[in-house]
Every structure is written in structure tokens, then in C-alpha cells.
Write a protein that binds this DNA or RNA. Structure first.
Length: 292
DNA sequence: ACAGGATAATCTA
DNA sequence: TAGATTATCCTGT
């Protein structure tokens, strides 16, 4: 099956594939010590091993076995590429404006003026919509300059995704407009559409420090990872790795600004705003994209 | 307080 | 005395 056809299947409103994947990740994260076999996992989820096989190849282009490996600590360390780490490309510009061509997703980005951030979005109109994605229901937020927010909605979660996002720019005006945001969702989650001739424009709204961190994140290639301290060093504040962690966690454009590619020095995933499980899923999914 | 981490101090076999 | 646990400090919201 081609990538495009696969995406066509998984972007169905049901989104059951991700539910299954999430279940598997949670299971193996909880008792990774006991090295559960595929049969055990399938049984616990009330599915047959063949069914799991199907879901994984459809979702990530990986066999269940390959996927399980992709989600281990071991693999996370490998993503860091301790031998000859390409490190962050020095080409990203520090400061505001200046779109640059970036990796994999072909994103151009600009930073909104600091005033907008300080005014908490005053005078800004943000249109939003909910769309199915490989990682559950995605909440997409756009301004007239481009993509400004991407969040994930988990029905049973502590905090509603919209509320979470809207609290970042509380004085902006919000208008539901799924027709306007739908093309963004399609573009973002379909690797077949990741082409240079149709770049995705994103708008970063945050503090100066945050924007430098987010720009650094965007230079990490697909299926690679760097540590928080790598980023700190790269933006010229080598002792601020903890502040970097906080800034990474405040990234408003999940997935597109690949905050899931920031790991602890030991390879630990350490945290993710939209749930560690989702971070694992993204890294596993990306591994599948490169394998294909 | 923190989604981190380097370094120093202190403990342990 | 090496090697493994704590203590402390740093940084921006």
C-alpha cells in the first residue's frame, strides 16, 4: 500500500488505529520489564495477533515487532545518534522573521512580533477546527499568516485541548472554521504532501527565548532527536537546559514544531505536553516513515 | 515548581 | 578508592 493510500485509510474519522497503537504503547511502557510478547499484548487488548499486525503495518509501515523496538529506550538512544551526531544545523536564524526552508515537513516560519505575545493575542483572530490525525483528534489553529497552533484532544483528559490553547493567547478572538483548517490538517499529516513547492507556513507566537528554542527544534531531521542540553548549547545558553525544557513544553504547534524529538540526555523521554504515549507514538511512526 | 543537567559532596562496598 | 546515591546551582515562565 502506498503512503498516500495508507494515510487515506488512517485519517478516517474513527481513528481506531491510533487507539490500538496507544493501547500497545501504554502496555509495554507499564510492564516493559517483563518483555511481553506479541501474543500477550494482543490478548490483553482483546485482539488477535494478526489483527495487530495489520494495524501496525497500516499505521506506521512497521511490523509490530519493529514497532516495539522503535519505542524502547534503546531506540531513543539511537535516535540521538551518539556517533557523529549531525547536531543542529547552524543555519537557523536567531531573531525574528526570515523564513527558512526546513527539514522533512518543508516548513517556513516567522515569529510574530513580541507585542502580540505580550498583549496575549489582543487583536488577533484565530480560526480553529478539529480533524482526525494519526495521533488522535487534532485541534488546528490558524491566523491569516499561517498555522499558529496544533493540539491533540483526548476526550477523557484533565484539560480540554481548546481551553489549553486558548489560555495561551487569552485575548485573541476565536472563530470555529473547520473548512479553513482542514487543508492544514491534510497537509501536515500526509507525508506525500510534504513537498518544497507547497511549503507550510507557521507563525510562532511566544517570548524571544521560546522562539529561539522552537526554531532550534525545527532543524532536527525526521526520526532524529537531540537532547535538551544540545538545544541549550545551540542557542548560546549552555546552562539553561532546564529553561529549554520549559520552553519546549510550551510549544504551541505540536508535531509540526517537533518537540517530540527532544529527549533527556540519557535517552529518557522525560515528558510531553500531550502525553508521553503520544510522544512515543510519534517517534515510532517517524521511524516507520524512514523505513519506507 | 518545572519536560534538564553539570558538578561537587557524601556515602558504600 | 572506584562507583553509586544525594545536594546544589543554573535558567526563563
Amino acid at each position: 500500500m502506498t503512503i498516500a493510500a495508507r494515510l487515506q485509510t488512517e485519517i478516517t474519522p474513527q481513528g481506531t488505529d491510533y487507539d490500538t497503537v496507544r493501547g500497545v504503547i501504554e502496555l509495554i511502557s507499564n510492564d516493559y520489564r517483563s518483555q511481553p510478547t506479541l501474543e500477550t499484548i494482543a490478548a490483553e487488548l482483546g485482539q488477535s495477533p494478526t489483527q495487530l499486525q495489520k494495524v501496525f503495518t497500516r499505521w506506521a509501515g512497521l511490523s509490530p515487532k519493529a514497532f516495539l523496538q522503535a519505542v524502547t529506550l534503546d531506540h531513543a538512544k539511537r535516535l540521538l545518534g551518539h556517533e557523529g551526531l549531525p547536531l543542529l544545523d547552524a543555519s537557523f536564524e536567531v531573531g525574528y522573521s526570515g523564513p527558512g526552508r526546513l527539514h522533512d515537513l518543508f516548513v517556513t516560519h516567522e515569529a510574530m512580533s513580541p507585542g502580540v505575545w505580550k498583549a496575549k493575542g489582543e487583536g488577533l483572530t484565530i480560526r480553529y477546527g478539529y480533524h482526525p490525525s494519526p495521533f488522535g483528534t487534532a485541534l488546528v489553529m490558524i491566523t491569516d499568516r499561517g498555522l499558529a497552533g496544533l493540539a491533540f484532544d483526548d476526550p477523557g483528559e484533565r484539560r480540554d485541548a481548546f481551553e489549553d490553547m486558548a489560555s495561551r493567547w487569552p485575548r485573541a478572538t476565536y472563530v470555529e472554521d473547520a473548512a479553513a483548517t482542514a487543508p492544514y490538517a491534510t497537509r501536515i499529516f500526509d507525508p506525500a504532501r510534504w513537498t518544497a513547492d507547497a511549503p507550510l507556513n507557521v507563525v510562532l507566537i511566544g517570548s524571544d527565548f521560546q522562539i529561539r528554542v522552537w526554531q532550534a527544534l525545527m532543524t532536527i531531521p525526521l526520526a532524529k532527536a537531540v537532547t535538551y542540553s544540545d538545544i541549550a548549547r545551540d542557542i548560546g545558553q549552555p546552562t539553561a537546559s532546564r529553561a529549554v525544557g520549559a520552553a519546549v513544553g510550551r510549544n504551541p504547534i505540536s508535531f509540526v514544531v517537533p518537540c517530540h524529538r527532544a529527549l533527556g540526555k540519557s535517552g529518557d523521554l522525560t515528558g510531553y505536553h500531550w502525553g508521553l504515549t503520544r510522544k512515543r507514538a510519534m517517534l515510532g511512526w517517524e521511524t516507520g516513515q524512514t523505513a519506507a
